[in-house]
């Protein structure tokens, strides 16, 4: 999986800096046609407050990055939008409607899990499940399904290993298949839970660019949970920081400052910038030391 044959990595270099946000997404005022809307939303799990009074409007086509320490409720936020966890107060809307399980407009990339290396399942089967895995019976039109699966495999560049057992693929290869699985239903909202975990820099760049390009071309909304903001800085329109007690949302340049982060964390935090990379020192936002991370693709 080295870069020469990879059209996406090459394409990325011409992508330039943070793309302009077409609409004013920073005001947080509710608007019709918003992809996601949270009004005073509060979540408690097993009697414990996770986050409170979260109000946020995510526009269609927006790329929202979600960061925060372990247990801050990032995964839970995605699960609320998937209709799997109810709010205790406030309101959540997805495309103007209450969240519901099985919403076909949502593509979901879960936090990585290991597959048994001997599991009799090929990459293409995993992708196909995203298309018709919820239907009864067995597939009666395998030909049509195969064409759709091949198309999306080509899009993410995973055709070459689509027939290999899923458990024997590398983390980066599995992640591309996960993206294909989420995209095959042609979602207008993509929920990604730490899709960069345990990927090398090149694979991180590939994954971010695949998702960002899908978002650009389809005007699809992306909510992207990550521990390391650097790989997604260029793609991000806004960053939502959940810290358990507080939350904040803003454009990356305004969010990632010593003042903003210190006040949100309630602890002294230093934000150091080096070229277009950001390091947050003093508290674990990045999971690992972000200073050592080169901006992918450069």
């Amino acid at each position: 999986m080295k870069g020469t044959h990879d059209p996406i990595a090459a394409d990325r270099r011409t992508g330039g800096a943070v793309r302009p946000v077409a609409r004013d997404v920073s005001t947080g005022t509710p608007r019709s046609g918003a992809a996601v809307q949270l009004d005073g939303a509060s979540l408690a799990i097993a009697g414990r407050q996770i986050w409170t009074d979260l109000s946020l409007t995510i526009a269609r086509g927006e790329f929202l990055v979600v960061i925060g320490p372990n247990g801050a409720g990032k995964t839970s936020l995605l699960r609320v939008l998937l209709g799997l966890v109810p709010l205790v107060r406030g309101r959540a809307l997805v495309h103007g409607e209450a969240p519901r399980r099985g919403n076909p407009a949502i593509g979901y990339i879960p936090q990585q899990r290991a597959f048994d290396p001997e599991l009799p399942l090929r990459g293409r089967d995993l992708v196909g499940m995203g298309l018709d895995g919820h239907r009864w019976g067995i597939s009666l039109r395998p030909g049509a399904q195969r064409t759709r699966v091949d198309g999306i495999l080509d899009l993410v560049g995973a055709r070459g290993y689509a027939d290999a057992p899923i458990g024997r693929l590398s983390g980066g290869e599995q992640q591309r298949l996960r993206i294909a699985q989420a995209l095959i239903g042609d979602p207008s909202l993509l929920l990604c839970d730490e899709p960069l975990l345990s990927l090398d820099l090149h694979s991180q760049a590939v994954v971010v660019e695949l998702i960002a390009r899908w978002s650009r071309e389809r005007n699809a909304t992306v909510i992207f949970v990550t521990h390391d903001v650097n790989p997604v800085l260029r793609a991000a329109h806004r960053i939502l920081l959940l810290t358990g007690t507080r939350w904040g949302v803003d454009r990356p340049d305004r969010m990632l400052t010593t003042e903003t982060l210190s006040s949100l964390y309630g602890l002294p935090v230093d934000v150091v910038r080096y070229r277009d990379r950001v390091a947050v020192l003093g508290i674990d936002v990045g999971g690992h030391d972000p200073v050592s991370h080169a901006e992918p693709g450069s």
């Binding site: 979901y108 499940m129 239907r135 067995i138 597939s139």
Partner: peptide
């Protein structure tokens, strides 16, 4: 088994996404 083949396989192998897909 034939009737539940696809949702059962989905739920067995990939429960997080299966749940999100409404299974």
């Amino acid at each position: 088994l034939l009737l539940v083949y696809r949702p059962l396989r989905f739920a067995s192998i990939d429960p997080e996404v299966a749940e999100a897909r409404g299974i």
